[in-house]
């Protein structure tokens, strides 16, 4: 999948501007950024789930398997959802319909995209639950969502997403609502399933730790723009954007004894605040005069993209 210059607005407020990235089969792309930076909107836009909201796609192309899926008809688009690309969400507790059994919710996905009978679909659903490591899948099919824990529900969501063997999985903060041990299990599971099926994964997170563990490459978003993108190894070894630098420094280190955690000063500006020049300059320790007047262009240095007038140097 290739996303080119995607822009999204609410009313006249641009929220996501000129976001471009690409993702290959079998690879994981991490999108990282603080809450409200536009990561989730970007993924919902790719899935075409913004219908019926105030949010509008203003420009851009999303090339998926050779076609621009933003240009195809609504029904062609719908046929892709679930079958070729699937999504799991941040809130496993509320993402399953409380009034239907787990089995029926998985089967609904299978029957939507494949000409199989109900019994065969139910059998497939049990296999899927086994694949996502849910014990005793046959009896779990008959459970209602409220009878499962958060981690279990997220596994069910993953089972639904994988039902029709998608080639792209978008995981929007899949572990944020779960406690830490369950987080690790879910991430391991995603990693395994990706290796097994060879699908591409877009992992959205605000947690650089999660990204470091699972992703091949990373795009760092700040206020609706990708401010830095490169391979994960390169990002941690050699961050160029001061925002990325700040994020990495603010990861608590278990081995050093500190009284105060490192943090980026200030907060993410709200969407209706207008900031001239570089959006990050009010919070940036490297900002100079022209940062407040002149928006930085995207600069490419080898495979490393960044938007900054005064990038952190490799040595620092």
């Amino acid at each position: 999948m290739d996303v080119q210059n995607l822009s999204i607005s609410v009313g006249n407020n641009p929220i996501v501007r000129n976001v471009s990235f690409s993702i290959e089969a079998g690879k994981t792309l991490g999108i990282v950024g603080e809450s409200g930076c536009g990561k989730s909107l970007t993924s919902l836009a790719i899935m075409g789930l913004l219908e019926g909201t105030q949010v509008r796609l203003t420009s851009g192309r999303v090339i998926f398997e050779g076609t621009d899926i933003l240009k195809v008809s609504v029904s062609e688009r719908r046929a892709l959802l679930g079958s070729r690309m699937a999504m799991i969400f941040q809130e496993p507790m509320t993402s399953l319909n409380p009034v239907y059994r787990i089995g029926d919710q998985i089967v609904e996905m299978i029957l939507q995209h494949e000409p199989v009978g109900r019994t065969a679909a139910m059998q497939r659903a049990a296999d899927l639950l086994r694949r996502v490591r849910i014990p005793d899948p046959e009896s779990r099919l008959k459970s209602f969502p409220h009878q499962l824990s958060g981690g279990m529900r997220q596994r069910v969501m993953i089972a639904i997403a994988l039902a029709s063997n998608p080639v792209l999985l978008i995981a929007d903060e899949p572990t944020t609502a779960l406690d830490v041990t369950v987080q690790a299990q879910i991430l391991d599971l995603l990693e395994e399933l990706k290796t097994e099926s060879g699908m591409g994964v877009i992992l959205i997170s605000h947690d650089l730790g999660v990204i470091a563990q699972t992703c091949h490459s990373v795009a760092v978003m700040y206020r609706g723009q990708i401010v830095e993108a490169c391979s994960t190894v390169e990002l941690f070894a050699n961050p160029l954007h001061p925002y990325t630098g700040g994020l990495i420094v603010s990861i608590p280190d278990a081995y050093s004894n500190v009284d105060e955690l490192n943090a980026i000063p200030g907060r993410v500006p709200t969407i209706d605040e207008r900031i001239s020049g570089c959006a990050f300059h009010p919070r940036c320790h490297c900002a100079k005069d022209n940062c407040s007047t002149q928006a930085p262009q995207t600069i490419q240095r080898a495979d490393h993209l960044y938007q900054c007038h005064y990038p952190l140097e490799a040595s620092s």
């Binding site: 719908r78 959802l81 679930g82 699937a86 999504m87 969400f89 509320t94 993402s95 609904e108």
Partner: peptide, 16 residues
Amino acid sequence: VQREDYVRTARSKGLH
């Protein structure tokens, strides 16, 4: 109910 997360899940399945 239309704003519930599980309705978004249903739409992400590609249902009519």
